[in-house]
Design a protein around this nucleic acid. Structure first.
Lengths: 190, 190
DNA sequence: TCACTAGACTAACGCTTGTTAGTTTCTGAT
DNA sequence: ATCAGAAACTAACAAGCGTTAGTCTAGTGA
């Protein structure tokens, strides 16, 4: 998908890296320029504003998740299988964009025009997730516990992957997804 | 412990609330002053600097966790029981300070003098956590899976509690801890 | 009554912020 | 050889930042 590599893309990629380290607000356009080896004013030949960069990082990721969920929820799988696919989706997206995931998780509130749209996507995603869990409880695949706690528990771990994957790159995506599935779905008690 | 309610404490409490909403860097001293109903300069009758506020919020919480872990790890319990106690510790601290937990999770990198100290506390906490998991694997209480994935998975959920507890205050701390234990330890598969 | 203190205020500082305007430089195609 | 476009530059802006100095005011205890 994102294979074009214009100067603009390099800037956004570099920005995502800095945003992960210090957060959107603490990164200045001069910081970003220095990291790119140019002057701050030169950035504006490629992007419209600082906000523009944040929007690009967050919205593209949010839409990736939305798209993935769309496929999973309409697929012909049982609930546990769907949860497996969701885990794989998160591992996949996060592996390919660890930096951006930090902004998605921590800097979404600094979106301006696109804040409402982002919140809509997130709300829908969580609703789809919850429906899968509830459906799994109904069909006796999943324990009859508070479905929101189940979703929260799994989703928290998946949303934190961006912190953890960079430290564990010896583990490939498939192995990680498999390990996570075991722990998250089947528990850790022997 | 923290029952004194000086003007300084009110400022720190208000700051924590704002930091949760927008992050440390995006909150200005004028924002904080407005929230307190005073002028920015007046804040400095009570605190030394903006950094001072962050330090207070984060370090006190980090030390609470360290203290709790100290008690748990030296207690006479098996590994699963110790994990239960850790879950209860997080639920307890987070319930009593949802705002501060946001700073602990997201703004620790903006600590200056105290950054090293904070990192030491965090590293020790995670090491203790890992030792409990490893010990549980050895004693056949916990499944023989990657101990770091187990720790990461549980800890991610516990660290995200601050996002979730405020929305679910109808659930009391004990019930929440019990539900989380079930899901995190015993899994969600039926 | 008087001195002290807590806690507010106004005014201002030096610095940093995101951004704009206008210009120059390099590179590749005609 | 010329031109066009991409991408850098310098210089500067207005607004906002954390913080300081110095002052005023209301309430308390001696």
């Amino acid at each position: 998908m994102n294979v074009v590599n214009t100067r603009r893309d390099e800037i956004i990629k570099t920005a995502a890296k800095l945003f992960k380290e210090k957060g959107y607000s603490a990164v200045t356009m001069r910081d970003l320029a220095t990291a790119m080896g140019i002057k701050a004013a030169s950035l504006y030949n490629h992007i419209h504003s600082k906000q523009d960069i944040l929007k690009e990082i967050i919205i593209s990721l949010a839409e990736e998740f939305t798209h993935g969920m769309e496929i999973i929820k309409t697929s012909d799988n049982n609930s546990i299988q769907k949860l497996n696919l969701i885990i794989a989706l998160h591992v996949d997206i996060t592996t390919n964009n660890t930096y951006g995931m930090a902004s998605l998780n921590n800097d979404w509130m600094h979106l301006e025009e696109q804040l409402e749209y982002y919140l809509k996507l997130r709300k829908n995603y969580e609703q789809d997730f919850l429906n899968i869990v509830k459906s799994g409880i109904s069909s006796n695949e999943i324990i009859d516990s508070n479905p929101e706690i189940i979703m929260f528990s799994v989703l928290s771990t998946l949303r934190s992957l961006y912190l953890w994957i960079p430290k564990k790159d010896e583990l490939n995506a498939k192995d990680l997804a498999q390990n996570l599935t075991n722990v998250l779905i089947y528990g850790i008690n022997k």
